[in-house]
């Protein structure tokens, strides 16, 4: 599984304000591999993307692309306030 993450928005409203990240989950050592699989499971992401906004001012928006072993890609647009802190920490480690 490949995870690609691009970010935009935030206080600056700048598309380039966060780096683009790409990670091949299958190449990661445990427990990172398992944590990534759970955090970026597509059904889970779809649920999170539906969470209503509490306060959106200046929050980053992530465009997360998850590509499975059959080269099937799914794209999710998720604000950072919709992701649990543990997932944000994972993104920061990528």
């Amino acid at each position: 599984m490949i995870i690609e993450i691009a970010a935009e928005g935030g206080f600056g409203g700048i598309a380039a304000a966060a780096s683009h990240k790409r990670i091949d989950v299958d190449q990661q050592a445990e427990p990172m591999r398992q944590e990534l699989c759970e955090a970026f499971e597509p059904d889970q992401l779809a649920l999170l993307a539906d969470k209503p906004c509490t306060t959106c001012a200046d929050r980053l928006t992530y465009r997360i692309t998850v590509t499975d072993s059959q080269q099937h890609s799914q794209i999710f647009t998720i604000r950072e306030d919709q992701l649990p802190p543990e997932t944000l920490d994972l993104i920061d480690q990528m």
Binding site: F11, A17, T54, T55, A57, L60, D92
Partner: peptide, 12 residues
């Protein structure tokens, strides 16, 4: 807040 984080915000 977060690592190398390029942002500041008010969360409500």
């Amino acid at each position: 807040h977060r690592r190398a984080y390029n942002n500041a915000f008010w969360n409500g």
